[in-house]
Design a protein around this nucleic acid. Sequence first.
DNA 1: GATGAATGAGGCTTCATTCAT
DNA 2: CATGAATGAAGCCTCATTCAT
Lengths: 211, 211, 211, 211
Amino acid sequence: MPTETWRNLPADKRDRITKIAIAEFGTKGFSAGSLNVIARDAEIAKGSLFQYFADKLDLFSTVCAAGSTTIAEATIGLIDTDQPFFDILRSIVVQWLAFFREDPVQQRMAFATANEIDADARAAVRSVANDFYAAALRPVIDAAVASGELRADVDTDLLLSMVVLTLRHLNSAPFDLAGDPAFPFHEMTDDDIDAVAARYIDVLERAFGLA
Amino acid sequence: MPTETWRNLPADKRDRITKIAIAEFGTKGFSAGSLNVIARDAEIAKGSLFQYFADKLDLFSTVCAAGSTTIAEATIGLIDTDQPFFDILRSIVVQWLAFFREDPVQQRMAFATANEIDADARAAVRSVANDFYAAALRPVIDAAVASGELRADVDTDLLLSMVVLTLRHLNSAPFDLAGDPAFPFHEMTDDDIDAVAARYIDVLERAFGLA
Amino acid sequence: MPTETWRNLPADKRDRITKIAIAEFGTKGFSAGSLNVIARDAEIAKGSLFQYFADKLDLFSTVCAAGSTTIAEATIGLIDTDQPFFDILRSIVVQWLAFFREDPVQQRMAFATANEIDADARAAVRSVANDFYAAALRPVIDAAVASGELRADVDTDLLLSMVVLTLRHLNSAPFDLAGDPAFPFHEMTDDDIDAVAARYIDVLERAFGLA
Amino acid sequence: MPTETWRNLPADKRDRITKIAIAEFGTKGFSAGSLNVIARDAEIAKGSLFQYFADKLDLFSTVCAAGSTTIAEATIGLIDTDQPFFDILRSIVVQWLAFFREDPVQQRMAFATANEIDADARAAVRSVANDFYAAALRPVIDAAVASGELRADVDTDLLLSMVVLTLRHLNSAPFDLAGDPAFPFHEMTDDDIDAVAARYIDVLERAFGLA
DNA sequence: GATGAATGAGGCTTCATTCAT
DNA sequence: CATGAATGAAGCCTCATTCAT
């Protein structure tokens, strides 16, 4: 956990450091990301980082959380929930893709957060990686259950799991050269990719929606 | 690509090095994995690694490919394809989980292969990561189409994509402390996990199978 | 260019490191000179060198420049310019030899600076190698022209080039076992060597001086 | 000294290895030149080099000598000695420049031979570096003395030394970006460079020639 | 005589972290 | 509280040389 010093920092400085750290870890991952580079780019002393964070991992998990907040707010949080449930999901995936298209740094950082391999780092961001979006989504699902938009016997855990699965896939595959086993996303237009993304939701609708 | 020296090596030595490298990269990932450690554990001279491989990345991608082959053969390759299509898938996911339970090293390496963040390493193993399993699965799907087990209008790309998605999820989530947003896999018995895995396939069956 | 850290270093520490680096590169040249050895002999951490210099080449060119300054000041810079022009030159070569006799480390480093083979290193010290002494000598030549000590049609570029040529030769030949094709410098007394050096100047005088 | 095995080698193989070694050492110098690279480029086994030569230094000095022979034959050896002495010298410097212009590899190797810094390597090629050309030139000078083309009191050692000095300078300066303190050789045409080279000889003529 | 696999020392450089100022 | 110099372990990689085949 960051120190009090960090919390007392002027917001703009804190934001600047966070942004730079996200860029660095997003590009290189936790292990290969360099505190030297972050300190240099953020124009702060190397030692200052250790006044704000206990160690490298502390910094990493802090910016992971910050990134996840930003992303959730800018995607799931923006969606009009006054639509049919599966339209909400379709809106989310489209917004999700739009957000990452406009902010490649956040795209990479979200990917790094979800896919960190180093055991310690993984332990630190693990809940963030998946659960953050789950927290944002579960109320939406619950509302759909309450309004009777899903099958009576619906398994909401399964549904949640698969929505997050889909989002994680759409966080990486469209931005990689060979990200998907079946779709050549990197050769497709944004609109076509959006269409494919919607079809993932179609599958969920056919399986979880009312007959 | 590995050197001729590598290909001429006695099989047992080659296997030993591969195994150790898989353990190292599986635990630490590409960037944090150490050639020093691999050489030491494999009891060969540090310099020898560079007689076998052009550089670290060459070693990494070689063992990635070797690992993927092993895994595909030991999971998808073992399944009796004389069953109904979705039973095949259910058999695959169960075998998939069983294989990784018995070989945690391969489990981690498969995860590392699919989730490497470093751009260069990612480029090198990218096709391996997804397409390898895709190659094994597509014939199975095609057979199901031919035998009329799927909807007439079925989108096989979408199906393939989601199967691989599911497999990748089952490569990591059950082996992580907080791997799934909805299911507490790490508190569940193997049988319960198998049951959940089958439910992912149920979803696919309801969406893609005959009404 | 060295870092600010280097410039802020206590002068004695900076001098110690410079001196040791000059000794190392003077003996082995750029390529074969070892940063490990320099760090060990200077009793600083290996990593510290990289707080002072961007890389090996940066260190090399810095100490080349420092060495050249020292040498120019201790030779050309010391000469009384209130003499006839060719006497000035004779004083310079004698002082030049005296300086290098007393400081073999500087002698070797000056040689290494002028004769580095590695392309990158050569590019970095190239102007230092020749032009540094040229800058010190040209004013002296211009004064001689102004005072009418040279032929009316004198080619000052040619004269300058040949003076530097001679100095470079006297930087190495007298200190090598078989440094000169004609004179067995290593079997000669210092006085005899001084006398030969003066004869090189005699040649210039006969060619460039007044009839 | 090379082994008998080396001497018994087919001439074309020996020439190929020599040529490749000259290219490597000419580019990188002795220390940084790599036997690995030479063996690879010459398409022979690394171990074979050690059947031909005692060690790296043995190879280096062998190819230095071979290079010097080639150069002397292709420059000094080609000149018509039936001219006035200083015309001979002028022909030599022009031919010298022409040869190196056409064979940059030999140019660099000659430079490397003359300027090696490593003490051991230097000891091995030292006599080659200067004396080889001296041996070729001294008979020419003696002939000039005999035919009375030089001053009665001429110091032939000094003359020889300065001729070699000049040749060594013309081996490097015109091929370097900032090779000469006074002349911007790299911005000059070949003809202009030839003209400057002749002026070095003019100086010698005025100093050593008949009044 | 030729090969080329094996070696391990050593190369330069980057790193996270500490601590005196 | 901020700084930034210092550290030394560890990183990847190249090297000349040996020796069994």
